[in-house]
Design a protein around this nucleic acid. Structure first.
Lengths: 339, 339
DNA sequence: TTTAAAATCGAAAACGTTTTCGATTTACCG
DNA sequence: CGGTAAATCGAAAACGTTTTCGATTTTAAA
């Protein structure tokens, strides 16, 4: 049973394809009676327009692409949820691709999306991307792009971000204010902007409060996993007996660290205070519960789509597009892992 | 700058569209020289075939749809990851829709996917669906469908599942073997097959081991949230002072329950043992760590796609399709929340 | 009854591919 | 050089829509 087409409806009704098409879309130049007939038949035959044909004709796919580094991730899945919820409201479908933090994959996937002629793409960069030609190429071909969370400052497009630097500053300052004297930092990889900014915020807070910045206190992680949290917590204990606070780039790692410290009998927060980043659900559930920075994933997804949608509209109407950079608020969530 | 088409390449090279198309796809009836010329130009112009046109012609979208109840969910996001990883290997893109446990939405989304002429759809049912006409309609129109995790036994299609009943039996039996005398069950809503099966497994284990089944010991939850875990744990304490074990439908609720019991000074597992279901990452991290049933999400996603892919292939070659039902293994993960 | 205006309809082109099949060119052999 | 086989090419139809614009029919007015 093949999908029913306009042609079939037209033939069984003895009218032209044109009229059927117009009847279905309530054109003014088709009679009420014909409209009723057509709509009824379409209904009973369960007619659904072939999106390919429509898109080929109208050049609109009503589909956007989304590239994220990792799907199984509390923050990113919240973002996804925000995006598809908002997209659905506007009649858009979203194709999700996972870059696995690989620049090469990211490039390939962008090509794929272009081939599908998506109306726009939303992207959060892989840790591995230091070159942005693929992004600029896409935009050069009229495909709107908006970046969120892990962005590249140098690329000229709309962005939705948080102020990582400020948030990290706040977190570190809280550690300082609560009496920590020697504060370590588990940072993310070198390339991503947010891991740079969080590091910078940490450093700034230190300097502003009369600490001397000690590079041996910052550990550069790679996978940002629970296991790395375990490993570097142990490492830190070995390297620096005097550390009494850690600001950690992301909650998952922080939870790994807490796990390791618990195991070794280190008292949190009495011996060492810990602050994470992101406010994963898990953070409110482990013991001790984790002080962290709340990062609004759902809102970020929603906002990113809105920006993209606005740009799609503008382009469609041949209006000038202005790139926006919206900064979402973060919040320090104080729990048990700090004094 | 409009996307470049075959026509453009053909014109600048002074050859026909046909030849360009064939050159790009390495047809044997175009000369090496022409192929080289075409490919070079395509490369420099950054030509990407218009998927709409291709699909309209070939009737293959190389896209599948995925409908799941909830994105922000450890199990489902693992499934998603498995699906898109496997799909990418075979050159398929996946459109993800979230039904939010709503039957109405699910129906609408299925229509949307059909309109997009996806090559197939993967679905895990919403809790609210008790009617399956929308699924049968889709299949009647030649769109392969495979269900996973939350399935409907009555629908005739390929499925990938776990043996919920057996797993629940194992869990409950473990509680019994470890000495529990009065075992409660927090079950899911009434409709979904897996919540029924888990309940049945629980009941069977009880009966098989000389317990009398007491309906007042099973609580029917709705949202399956952390908060519900809190609430029903409190409720249980009020209703039944003698309960010493709970088998809980899903880890998130179990974690909520543990949270509440911890707060009230109930000792786990000494006073009450708890077993969850799914093996969320979180379960290995809370205190006490949660004994649970491991449910292989990534593998399930991968398998579901494979089944779908097989069916797509078969249909394409006009071969008879046979529906398969594959059952994935589960495993009891013993941790601290049980004796 | 004629005529102009309004209402209703449909032919055809276009979107960018793929593929069949016939046409043309080239190479080769005697 | 003639003829056949092989190599190379392109015209055209098709996929299912949308939309323009001209054609036809109906209605209402004169």
């Amino acid at each position: 049973m093949k999908p029913v087409t306009l042609k079939e409806i037209a033939e069984t009704l003895g009218i032209s394809i044109t009229t059927v098409s117009k009847a279905l879309k309530d054109y003014p130049d088709v009679s009420k009676k014909t409209k009723r007939l057509v709509k009824e038949l379409a209904q009973t035959l369960n007619y659904k327009p072939n999106a390919f044909a429509v898109n080929l004709r109208t050049k609109e796919s009503k589909t956007i692409g989304l590239i994220i580094p990792e799907v199984v991730h509390h923050f990113f899945s919240s973002v996804i949820k925000g995006i598809i919820a908002q997209a659905e409201k506007k009649g858009y479908l979203v194709i999700i691709l996972q870059s696995n933090e690989s620049y090469e994959l990211e490039k390939k996937q962008l090509d794929l999306l272009f081939s599908k002629r998506v109306d726009g793409v939303l992207i959060s960069l892989a840790n591995g991307t230091g070159d942005f030609k693929h992004l600029n190429d896409l935009m050069a071909q009229e495909t709107p792009l908006v970046m969120f969370d892990k962005i590249a400052k140098i690329v000229n497009c709309s962005k939705v971000i948080i102020n990582d630097r400020k948030a990290a500053y706040t977190a570190t300052k809280y550690l300082i204010d609560s009496g920590c004297k020697r504060i370590a930092h588990f940072r993310g990889p070198l390339l991503p902007q947010n891991s740079i900014d969080r590091f910078l915020g940490y450093k700034q807070a230190l300097v502003d409060h009369g600490f001397v910045y000690d590079p041996s206190l910052v550990y550069i992680l790679d996978a940002m996993s629970f296991d790395e949290g375990n490993y570097y917590a142990a490492q830190l204990l070995k390297d620096h007996k005097d550390v009494d606070g850690i600001f950690i780039n992301t909650d998952l790692v922080a939870i790994g660290a807490i796990n390791e410290l618990n195991k070794r009998g280190v008292k949190i927060p009495d011996d060492i205070s810990i602050i994470g980043f992101s406010n994963w659900f898990m953070s409110s559930v482990i013991s001790p519960t984790l002080t962290t920075i709340d990062q609004p994933g759902y809102l970020m997804g929603k906002t990113a789509f809105k920006l993209l949608y606005k740009e799609i509209k503008k382009r469609k109407n041949n209006q000038a597009v202005v790139y926006e950079e919206v900064e979402l608020p973060t919040e320090l969530i104080i729990r048990e892992s700090t004094k």
